[in-house]
Amino acid sequence: MYISKHHVLPDLAEAQALMEAHPLGAWVAPSSEGLVANHVPFLLDRSRGKLGTLLGHVSRANPVWRQLPDSDQSVVMFQGPQSYIAPGWYPGKRSHGKVVPTWNYAVAHAHGVARAITDEAWLRDLLVRLTAVHESSRQSPWKVTDAPADFIDKLTRAVVGIEIPIERLVGKLKASQDEDLQDRQGTVAGLAAEGTENAAAMARLVERAMAGREDV
């Protein structure tokens, strides 16, 4: 991924936070038939490895897990807030006109060699952990044990685990850092006026970048 000096997200914790906040990863893996893409909700285990380890699962019917090579790296792309940036928001449009549209976004790319796991105890533990994370904010959190045991056993046998120890983690934050201050302020106002959750999230990133805080 190309990253200009303005858009580097150098802090490991910020990249990991982006992955946890936006856990549906676009996983691109090599296979004997070329590159294969799948979208997988991953759990990031920060305690395993210097950069963490990604844990997920795919359907047993999905051929990707049978095609994984032993040593070639996969990449998982996590997409944070993103938004079109209109040049009409820039005060510079009125003063000199030298402005064009652009697109702001925050992403993290995790690289590592993926392996498939069929152990049922490992898979059950993963399902319990994934569920706990995504149900934690609900008033009445659902638990794996809420469903009949034989039903869960059947579903567990229908999936295969995917584990990717992260060997390289690259983060990028494009939040108008290379624009004039007045145009960045105009961008925040323009995004806020859009009235959408996604635009509001990007407005917050632009504000944080202006304040020297690039947490995503």
Rank of each mutant, 00 (worst) to 15 (best):
G52K: 00
W65C: 01
A61W: 00
L35H: 11
P69F: 02
D70Q: 14
A29V: 12
V36E: 12
E214C: 10
H39R: 10
V216W: 11
Q79V: 11
A21G: 15
Q139E: 15
H134Y: 06
P91Q: 06
E135Q: 11
A37C: 15
G171T: 06
A116D: 09
E214L: 11
I85Y: 02
V8E: 14
W142L: 12
V170D: 15
K5Y: 08
Q182D: 15
L18S: 06
H111P: 04
A209I: 05
S71Q: 14
I85L: 12
S32N: 14
L130A: 13
S74T: 02
E14M: 12
S32H: 13
L51K: 01
P141V: 10
T118D: 14
G34T: 08
S59R: 05
E207C: 09
G52V: 01
I164T: 00
R184H: 04
Q177P: 00
E20Q: 15
Q16T: 06
H57D: 03
P81M: 03
F151W: 13
V160G: 07
L55I: 03
W122E: 14
G97R: 14
V75P: 00
P87Q: 06
H7N: 15
L169T: 00
V8L: 11
V216D: 06
P165T: 02
R157D: 08
A37G: 12
E120K: 13
Q182N: 13
A86Y: 00
A211Q: 15
G49F: 02
R48P: 03
R138W: 10
A132R: 13
G190T: 01
K172D: 05
S47C: 04
E197M: 07
G161C: 09
E120F: 05
L9K: 03
K98G: 06
E33M: 13
Q177V: 08
R129Y: 04
A209S: 15
R157G: 11
Q82N: 14
A132N: 07
D70G: 15
A86V: 08
A114I: 04
G186Q: 09
G25I: 02
V100S: 10
D146Q: 04
D180F: 10
A114V: 08
G161E: 06
A203Y: 01
H109A: 01
I152E: 03
M202P: 07
G190H: 03
Q139H: 14
T196N: 05
R184M: 08
P10A: 13
R184D: 05
E197S: 11
L54P: 00
L123N: 08
G212I: 09
R204P: 00
G112M: 01
T187S: 11
A17W: 06
F42Y: 05
V216R: 00
L12P: 09
A106D: 03
R168W: 03
R208Q: 14
T102F: 02
L173W: 01
H7F: 11
L43E: 10
A132Q: 12
W103I: 05
F42V: 02
E167L: 04
T196G: 01
Q67N: 12
D119Y: 08
Q177A: 07
E214I: 14
R184I: 08
